[in-house]
């Protein structure tokens, strides 16, 4: 086998070291932030913390956890990511499957496609979108966070390309067997596209998890805000002239901000290794052989 040759072993060693170096380059800033998040506010604000906390304490985390909004916000975020992703995937997969057919099978396919591409480029901006949400009665509703981004042209195009890369013989065989489009879609296409589904799901989960601005403008009631928006309210850039030195001194912005990066990102980081399971090569081939 190729990986037993001497040349490949040398390559493998060099490659592994290179990967470690790149990994370190990505890890160091995170370690710095971790150290800041566990430091006392004075040394953090003075820019003295590098990779080890000074004046170790977990106050920044406690301050965030003790926010009356935290638990509710976490729930809403999880719900948002789950519902939003499930629905997005449903819409995306169906549309992508149909659009992966050629013009003759799906008459008007190219019109559909450009109809969608257009939405990636042109937008009316914030004001009309807001007016739409008001008109639909979605202000202050959970669905205001889900519905507007449910269909994404980018995801549909990625997915349809994955579908097209699957061996066509299987689809033809299935159709000849008398199975309809829906059966072919569910029985053949979906099981074979797990890596792609995992990828697009991950993109969607991360998108929902990180979105904060829609929450801030569509949801007026703070008890209904998702986590990303709530974190925004805890570390508000205070206007010094109004709050005065006594308040500024009490807010250790840096440690709070650093802590919130971790609080905000950890749940979504945990999803990744779970989805990595589906990144296994050979599923497609196995299916064809059967």
């Amino acid at each position: 086998m190729y990986y037993k040759t001497r040349g490949y072993r040398i390559f493998n060693a060099v490659n592994s070291i290179f990967m470690a170096a790149v990994g370190l380059l990505c890890l160091l800033p995170m370690l710095h932030l971790l150290a800041v998040s566990f430091s006392a506010s004075a040394p953090a604000n003075a820019g003295l913390v590098s990779f080890w906390p000074i004046g170790f304490n977990a106050e920044a985390y406690l301050r965030t956890f003790s926010s009356r909004l935290f638990v509710g916000a976490l729930t809403i975020s999880v719900l948002r990511a789950a519902v939003g992703t499930a629905m997005t995937m449903f819409i995306t997969l169906m549309a992508a499957y149909a659009l992966s057919k050629d013009e003759r099978t799906l008459v008007g396919r190219n019109v559909y496609i450009w109809f969608m591409i257009f939405t990636m480029l042109f937008s009316g901006g914030l004001i009309p979108s807001y007016m739409l949400i008001v008109k639909l009665g979605l202000i202050n509703r959970f669905w205001a966070l889900i519905l507007p981004t449910l269909a994404s042209a980018y995801n549909i195009i990625l997915m349809l390309n994955f579908f097209r890369s699957l061996p066509r013989e299987m689809e033809e065989a299935s159709l000849i067997d008398g199975a309809g489009h829906l059966a072919t879609f569910f029985r053949i296409y979906l099981p074979l596209s797990l890596p792609a589904i995992a990828t697009v799901s991950l993109f969607t989960i991360v998108f929902h998890w990180n979105s904060y601005f829609d929450g801030l403008i569509y949801i007026g009631d703070k008890n209904r805000l998702p986590l990303a928006s709530v974190l925004q309210t805890i570390i508000v850039q205070q206007d010094f002239r109004i709050v005065g030195p006594e308040v500024m001194a009490r807010l250790s912005q840096r440690t709070l901000k650093a802590a919130q990066i971790f609080i905000g990102a950890i749940p979504v980081l945990l999803v990744y290794p779970f989805l990595q399971r589906y990144f296994i090569s050979g599923i497609v081939l196995g299916a064809v052989k059967q």
């Binding site: 914030l126 007016m131 008001v134 801030l216 403008i217 007026g220 925004q232 309210t233």
Partner: peptide
């Protein structure tokens, strides 16, 4: 109105008068 931060408060006011 419960503004989260200064930016979103400004945006919210602008949106409210626009709509």
């Amino acid at each position: 109105l419960e503004p989260a931060d200064a930016d979103s408060y400004r945006t919210k006011l602008q949106l409210m008068i626009s709509s």
